[in-house]
Design a protein around this nucleic acid. Structure first.
Length: 291
DNA sequence: AAAGCACCCTGTACGC
DNA sequence: TGCGTACAGGGTGCTT
């Protein structure tokens, strides 16, 4: 379930170790995870095109990990179960490492993804992949360098209330919409809505300007807390950082996957409902639907 | 515009 | 303890 904070953690870790290093190639054992895209190499063509390229920097846009290489861009979406790790090239083979990047110094970057939803792209032009994404919720993250490249923009406070006014759908579906705001997933949306004391089905256009700004503040605070906690690790098989460490955000969750447990604000049990096809967690007492 | 659904996948949780 | 089944959800694409 990597969302913005988890991908941000990977981007920061990789930015410490990859710039300047040369890629030697790639092994792809599930070619569907390297699909054809405009200006890109897919499947087995990944390795030869990567060979000899150096890493310039590692960044993030929404939930995409974006790596600038000397000639191309390497873009990875981890989707549900994707993880990254750097290992010696003689480390035991990992049957779930469907895409492995070989590097200099006898090391590999492994993309491990049991559910195979994740995707890897090597493209000359990253724009078609990233263009539809909405604004970044926060400045001060690794996406800043993509802002400089014109590949990202940060949400401006003034535009937020008016953008909400134009949408009649429920808040949860809207915050999950990557073209509206980039990077939030199920965990951080539920936490944001609780922090703002707003119901997931609340129509966006009904928020007052003050409520809209409270929602913005809540969203930024939740994302910031998630980044500082280095992501959310909900189960042993779930998210780990590049070094295999768990994140710590699961210890700070107020409602997500806490069905039946007391709301941290009022003590009433947390409820679970399905919104936008996703398991959704609310405190019915704190998050009432406004008429 | 918005909502619902199938699809892609497999580990995990749960009921019996 | 073991087996079978439903569930989990990010994103895309299609339908209503």
């Amino acid at each position: 379930m990597p969302e913005l904070p988890e991908v941000e953690t990977y981007a920061r870790e990789l930015q410490h170790v990859l710039p300047g290093r040369a890629l030697a190639g790639a092994r792809v054992t599930w070619p569907r995870q390297v699909p054809p895209v405009q200006s890109g190499a897919h499947g087995d063509a990944l390795g030869p095109r990567l060979a000899g390229q150096r890493v310039v920097y590692v960044s993030r846009r929404g939930k995409y990990l974006v790596t600038r290489l000397s000639a191309d861009w390497l873009i990875i979406h981890l989707k549900m179960s994707g993880r990254l790790m750097i290992t010696p090239q003689d480390a035991p083979p990992d049957p779930y490492a469907q895409v492995v990047f070989t590097m200099d110094r006898g090391e590999e970057l492994r993309f491990r993804d049991p559910r195979k939803f994740g995707r890897v792209y090597l493209v000359a032009d990253p724009r078609p992949l990233l263009a539809r994404l909405g604004p970044e919720p926060l400045a001060g993250l690794s996406s800043d360098c993509l802002v400089q490249e014109g590949l990202a923009h940060v949400l401006h406070d003034d535009e937020w209330p008016e953008r909400l006014k134009r949408r009649r759908g429920g808040l949860k579906a809207l915050l999950l919409d990557q073209t509206f705001i980039a990077g939030l997933g199920n965990i951080y949306v539920d936490e944001t809505l609780f922090a703002a004391r707003l119901h997931p089905l609340q129509p966006a256009h009904r928020l007052s300007e003050a409520q809209a700004m409270l929602l913005l503040e809540a969203m930024r605070q939740v994302v910031k807390t998630g980044v500082e906690a280095r992501g959310t690790s909900l189960s042993a098989g779930g998210y780990r950082d590049l070094s295999g460490n768990y994140g710590e955000m699961q210890d700070s969750l107020a409602v997500f996957r806490r069905t039946g447990q007391p709301c941290p604000a009022c003590g009433q049990p947390v409820s679970r409902l399905v919104v936008a096809g996703r398991g959704t967690h609310v405190c019915r007492h704190c998050q009432s639907l406004m008429a």
